[in-house]
Write a protein that binds this DNA or RNA. Structure first.
Length: 600
RNA sequence: GUUUCGGUAGCUCAGCUGGAUAGAGCAACGGAUUUCUAAUCCGUGGGUCGCAGGUUCAAGUCCUGCCCGAAACGCCA
């Protein structure tokens, strides 16, 4: 929020109390005046009275006096240590909507604070299609990248695909046995779903064999599934296949390439629909051996140590993380070793200032350890690594579990929401008036609903996804925000038809109603919200703001007509206010990778 | 056991560096449309902010302890 009277108040107070030396970065930040207080903005003097070592009440009195005589101010009223300010019509708009290009145009951060940011997200496994959990990850990652870019950072988006390992072999084994040569083409099934079917099929067979095993051997009854895995025929087969893969067996590699290509084709469609793109995609099959050389180096330097059996460990007791194995006694590497390797690879390829991982909160400990190790290894950039740990998505019925078939499939969810959006649109346009862009519109609304529904929560909270509630497009939703834009688009179209042109000579003084002023005041907060949202890496701050702005518009819409206003000058002023409001809302949604339909 | 994250209205969640009488959406109930899109707007009811101490002029917010929930603490990824 940036108003001239606030800047002047700041100068006035600084001049009056020169001994306080508040520093140059100090500013007076006002809030929206609470509805019942009767004002436009509120200055909370508690916040900065400390700087002057004065009684907040005294500062408030002086501030109210100063503001009362300020040319921009209609009224300034002191209540306790708050000063509620009513701005004059032209002043309230002058520093916000009237200068919309300054709000929408430039990056938010000053040049010195812009950095090169590497964001890794998605990181799917190529053995099954993506589900709601992935959708949250994709949405958070993509919108974070977009938001960081919006505020001025140079962003590199990275996907690290988990395309090898025992879980991939499971699908392959099941396909060999039960696949009957099916392909996405022959079965008409999307590639990732087809492969996922065989992953499930493997599990069914494994359960059957586990049950048989336990029945035959009573003493195995108390063993876990994991412990018995290699005692089942199918489990052993999967393990054998993994070893063959690692040995480069041509037959296994060929099947692996074929099935993975199906999955990649499927993922590409899912990503495209979500509007997700990456600058680089790394494949684990090409990076999983990285990190081993670091281990040797670390032992030589004394950062790591060799245990009697030959395994290599690092001691992290001093940072309360215990000891961590980095190389097994048999010389094979572990997850951490790989991650050390890929982190280094990503750094060398991109040389970022900051690296961010969008990964579930169950891996908080892993990343703490990873960062601690890199610091011990002496990399200065290790100070700038962040794990954006997001919470799980639960259903009203409990946790999502692939095995129990309780996952919400990403593609199904998209289809369902888009179909609902389409049905809702059809219902409101009436019979025989199907818009030609209905499919594109429905896609924007349906996907917007899903994304907004995931982004309006703080990433770290474990959220409850209620399918019943999520199919509604009313209230705190993406479509609500989009709807405000659609209404404005409609006004703009009709204004054009009526030959109403905004022009350059807008008389902002005319937009003096409470609703019109509120729009301006809210818009003046936009840049601060963007900055804060990016800084906290929390999309919910921006979502909350966009809801408030859309709400303020809807209130205005209810109270004041644009096209039926008393005179053309007022029509033009209101039209300009509306269009600029929409531009801000659309910019905010775009920063979250949500589109706006032309009409709804 | 240790660590981390949660606990705010019937439900789902906001509440930034402590500041006015704790907010929103949904659900419930009652209103609003000769007017630019009702995917809208307005109103009513609904709260010991997990509990107990402490710091402060001021605590949902900071500190300590405890209770409850989730996750992590692998030579799985």
């Amino acid at each position: 929020m940036n108003y001239r009277c606030l800047d002047d108040l700041r100068s006035f107070l600084s001049g009056k109390y020169p001994d306080a030396k508040p520093g140059s970065d100090w500013e007076i930040v006002a809030d929206i005046c609470p509805a019942e207080m009767n004002g436009d903005i509120t200055v909370n003097c508690f916040r900065f009275a400390k700087i002057f070592r004065k009684n907040p009440d005294q500062i408030a009195t002086e501030s109210a006096e100063f503001l009362s005589s300020h040319p921009d101010v209609e009224k300034a009223e002191k209540i306790k240590a708050f000063v509620n300010v009513t701005l004059k019509g032209e002043a309230v708009h002058r520093d916000t909507v009237a200068k919309i290009n300054e709000i929408l145009g430039s990056p938010i951060l000053p040049e010195g604070k812009r950095q090169k940011v590497l964001i890794e997200f998605s990181a799917p496994n190529t053995n099954k299609p993506q589900h709601l959990g992935h959708v949250r990850n994709n949405t958070i990652g993509m919108s974070l990248a977009s938001l960081m870019k919006r505020v001025g950072h140079d962003v590199v988006r990275i996907n690290l695909v988990n395309d090898r390992g025992i879980h991939i072999c499971k699908s392959m084994i099941a396909y060999q046995r039960f696949g009957e040569g099916a392909t996405p083409e022959s079965s008409g099934r999307k590639g990732d779903h087809l492969v996922g079917d065989f992953y499930v099929r493997f599990d069914q067979e494994l359960r059957k064999q586990l049950a048989e095993l336990r029945e035959k051997n009573g003493e195995l009854k108390d063993k876990t599934d994991e412990e018995l895995f290699l005692q089942t025929e199918i489990g052993r087969s999967a393990q054998d296949m993994l070893q063959k893969w690692e040995a480069g067996d041509p037959e296994v590699k060929s099947l692996w390439l074929k099935m993975n290509s199906w999955v990649f084709a499927g993922f590409a469609k899912t990503y495209e629909r979500m509007g997700i793109e990456f600058e680089h995609t790394y494949l684990e099959s090409q990076t999983y051996l990285l990190g081993k050389d670091l281990v040797e180096e670390g032992v030589k330097k004394g950062t790591f140590f060799k245990r009697e059996d030959g395994a290599v460990l690092i001691d992290l007791e001093d940072v309360k993380l215990g000891k961590k194995v980095l190389l097994r006694a048999d010389g094979t590497s572990v997850y951490m070793t790989q991650d050390l390797g890929t982190t280094l690879l990503k750094y060398r390829d991109n040389v970022p200032d900051i690296q961010i991982w969008v990964v579930g909160d169950e891996q908080i400990h892993h990343f703490k350890t990873l960062f601690a190790i890199l610091k011990k290894m002496g990399y200065k950039w290790a100070e700038n690594l962040h794990h954006l740990a997001y919470g799980m998505v639960n259903l009203p019925t409990g946790k999502m579990k692939s095995r129990e078939g309780t996952v919400v499939d990403a593609d199904d969810l998209f289809d369902e929401m888009v179909a609902l959006a389409k049905a809702a649109t059809m219902e409101r346009v009436g019979e025989g008036k199907v818009p030609e862009d209905i499919d594109r519109r429905s896609e924007i609304i349906g996907l917007g609903a899903i994304k907004f529904n995931l982004l309006k929560f703080n990433p770290k909270t474990t959220i409850m996804f209620d399918p019943q509630a999520s199919i509604k497009f009313e209230g705190d939703t993406g479509p609500y925000v989009q709807y405000a834009c659609a209404r404005i688009n409609s006004i703009e179209r009709k204004a054009k038809e009526a030959g109403l042109v905004i022009g350059d000579d807008i008389n902002w003084k005319l937009a003096s109603s409470h609703e019109e002023k509120e729009l301006s005041v809210r818009i003046s907060q936009y840049r601060d919200v963007l900055r804060q949202s990016a800084e906290k890496m929390d999309s919910s701050t921006l979502c909350e703001y966009l809801l408030e702005l859309a709400k303020a518009f809807n209130r205005f819409y209810r109270e004041h007509s644009v096209l039926n206003a008393d005179n053309d000058e007022l029509k033009r002023t209101r039209l300009a206010l509306c269009c600029r409001t929409r531009d801000v809302v659309a910019d905010g949604l775009k920063s979250l990778t949500i589109d706006v339909p032309a009409a709804m």
